[in-house]
């Protein structure tokens, strides 16, 4: 008993004050990119085609960066010596629609006024389905339950049974082998169901986009309400998304 108390003293108080205070992220952390593709020359254009997931998209002669596909590898920042892409330390990335993930975009939208979101303001129970990713998104979701982030102080918890859940988090590109299990889990949630796609895989298939073994993300199987990009997203990015969902941010 005394030993446990001494250890508790030594280990100290570790819970972040987030969202009141934001911890300093490492200087090499790659968060929300700022883009200005008008700076590119012809050489950049050729190199930007090498984006591993084709996240630099060109429509009507305009180049844009799709955060839903982005692995945050920053190869594009290196591809354009004129600084068309610069990764900032901004960790807030969650978006309510797939289109809002494409940069440069419009101002970030607020939560859609759907009655199903009002029910979860004080209590949000989440069921996570891991579907074919690399388990890094799952690892950084799990981290939210540690003393550092202490998810339960926001009235949010991860539950074992889909019957107890308000929302479903999907991580991974959803392999064909997981499709049925994801459908069944979704149907086991009581309506109205909320679905959150966490990570590049769940949003767009990520590095497995186009593989015939996968469905190419959560939206191919279930309707998605909130997108949290990253590969994997930082725990703070996920937490920010969940707090936006409950209306706390």
């Amino acid at each position: 008993m005394l030993r446990a108390l001494a250890a508790r003293l030594k280990q100290g108080q570790r819970t972040l004050s987030y969202p009141k205070g934001t911890p300093t992220l490492p200087d090499r952390f790659r968060g929300r990119p700022e883009t200005d593709f008008s700076r590119c020359d012809a050489g950049c254009a050729a190199r930007l085609k090498d984006c591993p997931t084709g996240a630099v998209v060109e429509t009507d002669g305009h180049r844009r960066l799709d955060l839903g596909r982005c692995l945050f590898c920053a190869d594009c920042a290196a591809a354009c010596p004129h600084g068309a892409v610069r990764f900032t330390a901004e960790h807030k990335l969650a978006a309510w629609s797939r289109e809002d993930l494409v940069l440069p975009g419009t101002e970030p939208k607020i939560r859609p006024d759907d009655p199903k979101f009002r029910k979860i303001a004080r209590s949000l129970q989440i069921r996570v389905v891991s579907a074919g990713g690399c388990n890094a998104c799952e690892a950084d979701i799990n981290v939210l339950s540690t003393i550092v982030f202490d998810l339960s102080r926001f009235g949010i918890s991860v539950v074992a049974s889909p019957r107890h859940a308000d929302a479903l988090i999907v991580a991974g590109p959803v392999p064909r082998n997981m499709r049925l299990a994801l459908e069944k889990t979704y149907r086991a949630l009581p309506a109205p169901r909320i679905v959150i796609a966490v990570g590049a895989c769940a949003i767009s298939g990520g590095p497995y986009a186009g593989h015939e073994e996968v469905c190419g993300g959560a939206a191919a199987v279930v309707p998605v309400d909130l997108y949290i990009p990253g590969c994997p997203p930082h725990p703070l990015t996920i937490l920010d998304g969940l707090l936006k969902l409950t209306g706390r941010l």
Binding site: P52, L71, A131, G132, P173, P175, Y208
Partner: peptide, 25 residues
């Protein structure tokens, strides 16, 4: 097998821009 996403098959013909990311994941 539920996590099977075709990594080995996708590496054939490479190395390409995605190869290292398939390895990191």
């Amino acid at each position: 097998g539920y996590q099977h996403r075709g990594i080995e098959r996708a590496l054939v013909g490479g190395p390409g821009p995605r190869s290292i990311h398939l390895m990191e994941t």
